[in-house]
């Protein structure tokens, strides 16, 4: 059953976690191309309030962008294609149908903004 929060001991078995990690991890031994993980850089600026949507998303965006740039640099060094040529057609995660609706929504929002002004 549910125990009261105050008198509950929280497990944090650091040794156990490290041992378990050593047991199942493969990314340490693998080449970078096998997983393509980019660790973010520690920055001075921290997010003041996670509930501030705009600040949070900008923070997220900037960090992801920095990592994307690092990844592209790495990929170029080992000669892996990054950019999709314009004549390369293949299935996308969102269908054309869906993208049409996304665009229509975007236009709708812009025009409604304009009419309000």
């Amino acid at each position: 059953g549910y125990k009261k929060l105050e008198n509950r001991a929280f497990v944090n078995n650091k040794e156990g976690l490290r041992a378990s990690l050593d047991d199942f991890q493969w990314t340490k031994k693998a080449k970078w191309i096998d997983h393509m993980v980019v660790a973010g850089t520690k920055t001075a600026e921290t997010l003041a309030d996670v509930n501030d949507d705009l600040a949070r998303e900008t923070h997220f965006y900037e960090h992801a962008l920095r990592s994307a740039e690092v990844a592209i640099k790495n990929l170029k060094e080992i000669g892996v294609a990054v950019k999709r040529p314009d004549d390369f057609y293949a299935e996308m995660v969102k269908s054309d149908e869906h993208m049409k609706r996304v665009r229509a929504e975007l236009i709708f929002e812009q025009t409604s903004q304009e009419t309000r002004e």
Partner: peptide
């Protein structure tokens, strides 16, 4: 939108 099943780059804080 992006290619279905293209390999992702992973970012971790």
């Amino acid at each position: 939108n992006h290619l279905k099943f293209s390999r992702p780059v992973l970012h971790f804080d």
